[in-house]
Amino acid sequence: MRTDFEVDIARRINAGVAAYTERVRSKRAGLLTLTQTAVLGQLYRHGAMTPGEIAERLRAKPQTLTRVLAALQERGRIARTPDPSDGRQSLITITVGGRAALGEEMRPRHLFAAELIASELTDAERDLLTIAAGLLERLAAAGDPPVRAEP
């Protein structure tokens, strides 16, 4: 059982991350839908996945992603290949064009965040935030299934 202090810290971190994410997420290029961005982001960070694995990571139903995956494939942002371990499945990978589109979509967010950090935080706070970013990345990856090798 966690102490009230530990639970309060977790609540403050969750609230702060959520509020920050909402603010930064509004800055976008508009080249991709939020769901397309999420799918490409998963593929960029974790490598090849089946549609079911993508859906699981996004906490969505595979049927929900059918149109999104079709649209991304039609635009050359993802590629499908047979899963070597299960021929009934396909593996989805992000293409060079998908990486470029994701980068363009995320650039306004990153620029906005960089400006916000530069204008609102001291050098010491920026250093601390860099450490916190690494810790948040580690917590976000805790318990993730291993990354699959690209086909």
Rank of each mutant, 00 (worst) to 15 (best):
T33G: 13
D83T: 03
A48W: 00
A124W: 01
L121I: 06
A100Y: 05
R12C: 01
G41C: 11
G76D: 11
A133Y: 11
E56W: 01
L128W: 12
T21Y: 10
A18W: 09
E53R: 03
P108D: 10
A18L: 15
M106S: 08
V39P: 05
A132R: 12
T50V: 12
A140S: 13
A149E: 15
A124Q: 12
R99P: 01
A79V: 15
E56Q: 12
R11K: 10
R45C: 10
R2H: 04
T37K: 10
A18Q: 13
A48C: 09
A10V: 06
P151L: 09
P145D: 00
E53P: 00
G103N: 06
G52L: 14
R57S: 05
I54A: 07
D144E: 13
A149I: 11
T95W: 10
R75Y: 01
E56M: 07
A118D: 15
G134V: 09
R138C: 07
R11P: 03
L129K: 02
Q63D: 15
G143Q: 07
A48H: 01
L31W: 01
A118P: 00
L136C: 09
T95G: 15
P146W: 04
D127N: 06
L139I: 05
E137C: 10
L65K: 05
P82M: 03
L128T: 13
A114I: 02
E6G: 02
Q63S: 13
T33W: 03
L128K: 14
A100S: 06
R109I: 09
M106Y: 04
L58Q: 08
D127Y: 04
V147A: 11
I9Q: 11
T37L: 14
A38Y: 06
V96C: 07
I117G: 04
A29G: 07
L102Q: 02
A113H: 09
E53L: 05
G47C: 03
V39S: 10
A15L: 14
M106K: 08
L58A: 09
Q36I: 09
D8R: 08
